[in-house]
Design a protein around this nucleic acid. Structure first.
Length: 603
DNA sequence: GCCGTTTTCGGCCCGACTGTTTTCAGTCG
């Protein structure tokens, strides 16, 4: 998939460089849109560059960009990118990442004052010469200075599992505010994206001004960025617990505390659906909806779906025009002649072509946890505690899968200890009724694809989760061979966190996923969505590819601590983003069906 | 640069907020 990644990067950079050069915005957008189209694809586009029409068949890719992709495949680069890079230094491009600095401002700084990097920008703020530029007043400069400070903290996009509890806390807070009748979170969080840039909160309130005030004075607010009548933005201080990956080393200093932007919009009850639709995004999905509306002589905004009147001045809601639909998302989709699209699918990846709303997996469908650790390896739960936790959640099956012997730092079990563990599990089976306890292992897939126990042991276990842990920077060919060999082992049931990536921390291996999907289907192996919010591996686009390739999927919490069971929803969201139906996920099967499936590989 | 059950040329989504402005440009989502 490295071709896709390179193509996305180059096209996005072309778009940014054109922006700084002040070129046609539509041309810029076309490149950015093509990049997004490729980003959402589950298959490797490099293989399609031999067939130009296959490229231009992709929506958003026309003849010119197709040629650039072919050039990339043949030469490893794009000449247009190189030509632009001659004109635009890397420095100003980096400045675009600072919130509040857009292309116009960066261009001004660069062309008028020769500012090409953060240091140069700080220097002209320091000596006050930035104030000589047009539209640069004291306040504007203060905002830029604050934005630089934030950029230097580099909190980046926030993990889903960090943002969700914050959003729920804010929603709870707003629910308690007098006059507030409805509250929810929207944005990429509602769509279940693996990381979010900010948190969007939507409320209905009898007194919008008071609601805004209550929002901006929450105790966790460290800065107020905007305070309008219907819209407020704040930075909200975070207490991040990264659990067993707590290598951030952040101190508790309140000033330097990591924070996230939270936006509040106050809307009228009558336009709730339009606002929810609008603020849930994605931006690309919304653009598609508006284009579709225009074709039907309608216009869509956050207040509703209105009859279009090209002659009239001003927005329809300000003229008192009655909307065709506004109160619910469902009626807006219906009036546009579309089926309801679940939020997780709203990414402009073909969801508007659906002719019925797909039945996607839900948290309540999950009946088994098939990947869990105890104090025998690196878990913090004793066997009895793990079993109790699974039972509490209404699961019919819990699999104990401690690490295998090569995972030394994680307390991996020698064969001797693994055999001894069976005794403890048998005892637990005697003591606990109402749940099936499986004895399995999370077996290391070694760098060459060999498994960490021999076949006799693997066959003796009830379930085998095979996962890559070390050698995660090996090249894609070796990584592909490695996973294929594990999939072909006759006793492997699940490939755990197949790429080993940690979101925003390390990329993991990049095997040829199409080959992995095909082999997994052939050998009746499920590919795991590891539900921990730092992993979410398979990622959403991989799930989509695996579902299309008719693979089985497992959603597991990879339980190490009691709270890890609660990560299940993030795994399910990721599955939904991959268009995963319930019956393709082995964790939703009945105990009987699941046991029958496992027994095929474990005599 | 892409796209087309009105179009192969002429369009390309819409509104809030801010700051610097005397009516609007820039940014964001």
């Amino acid at each position: 998939m490295s071709f896709n990644r390179d193509a996305v990067r180059l096209l996005n950079e072309i778009a940014s460089m054109m922006e700084l050069l002040g070129e046609n915005p539509f041309k810029i957008n076309a490149h950015a849109r093509a990049a997004r189209a490729i980003e959402g694809m589950s298959q490797d586009l490099g293989a399609a560059t031999g067939d130009r029409s296959a490229l231009t068949d992709i929506e958003g890719i026309g003849p010119k960009i197709a040629d650039k992709l072919i050039e990339l495949a043949e030469t490893g680069g794009m000449s247009e990118h190189a030509a632009l890079a001659e004109k635009v230094p890397a420095g100003p491009m980096g400045l675009l990442n600072i919130p509040g600095l857009g292309p116009k401002t960066v261009r001004l700084l660069w062309q008028e004052r020769g500012v090409t990097d953060l240091a140069g920008l700080k220097a002209i703020i320091e000596d006050g010469s930035i104030l000589e530029l047009p539209r640069m007043g004291k306040k504007a400069v203060e905002k830029i200075a604050a934005a630089i400070k934030f950029a230097e903290q580099d909190t980046g996009r926030l993990h889903l599992g960090v943002a969700m509890p914050v959003a729920e806390t804010v929603v709870e807070h707003m629910r308690g505010v007098k006059g507030v009748t409805r509250v929810t979170f929207a944005g990429s969080l509602r769509r279940g994206k693996e990381t979010v840039g900010d948190i969007d909160i939507l409320v209905c309130a009898d007194d919008p001004v008071a609601a805004g005030e209550a929002f901006r004075t929450m105790p966790e607010v460290v800065a107020v960025l905007a305070a309008g009548d219907t819209k407020s933005s704040v930075r909200y201080g975070l207490d991040v617990d990264l659990g067993r990956w707590n290598f951030e080393g952040r101190s508790g200093d309140a000033e330097e505390r990591p924070s996230v932007q939270v936006d509040l919009r106050v809307v009228d009850e009558s336009s709730w659906g339009a606002a929810l639709l609008y603020f849930s995004g994605s931006k690309e999905h919304n653009v598609r909806l508006r284009e579709r509306a225009l074709k039907q002589d309608l216009t869509l905004n956050e207040y509703g779906l209105f009859p279009e009147d090209r002659e009239a001045e001003g927005s329809p809601q300000s003229r008192g025009v009655k909307p065709v639909a506004a109160a619910t998302e469902e009626e807006i989709y219906a009036k546009l002649g579309l089926v309801f699209v679940p939020p997780e699918l709203r990414e402009d990846r073909g969801e508007l072509a659906l002719d019925e709303t797909p039945a996607l997996i839900e948290v309540g469908d999950i009946k088994a946890e098939l990947h869990a650790h105890t104090t025998e390896s690196d878990g913090s739960l004793a066997l009895a505690e793990l079993v109790a936790g699974a039972k509490e959640r209404g699961f019919h099956t819990i699999a104990v899968t401690d690490h295998s012997k090569s995972a030394a730092v994680a307390g991996g079990l020698t064969v001797k200890r693994l055999r001894a563990q069976r005794g403890a599990i048998d005892a637990a089976r005697q003591e606990t009724k109402g749940i099936t306890i499986l004895h399995g292992s999370e077996v290391d897939i070694l760098a060459d694809g060999e498994l960490d126990y021999d076949d006799e042991i693997l066959a003796w276990l009830d379930v085998v989760v095979a996962s890559p842990h070390a050698a995660l920077s090996q090249d894609p060919k070796a990584a592909t061979k490695r996973l294929l060999r594990a999939i072909e082992n006759p006793h492997v049931n699940i490939i755990g966190h197949p790429t080993g990536r940690l979101i925003n921390k390390r990329p993991g291996i990049e095997p040829a996923m199409d080959e992995i999907y095909a082999a997994a289907k052939e050998h009746d192996v499920a590919l795991e969505i590891n539900a921990h919010w730092l992993r979410l591996d398979l990622r959403d686009t991989h799930v989509r590819g695996a579902v299309e390739a008719e693979c089985l999927i497992a959603i597991d919490c990879d339980v190490h601590r009691a709270g890890d069971f609660d990560n299940l929803r993030y795994g399910v969201l990721t599955g939904r983003r991959g268009w995963l139906p319930k019956d393709r996920c082995i964790n939703t099967w009945s105990a009987k069906k699941l046991q029958g499936w496992l027994a095929k590989k474990h005599g």
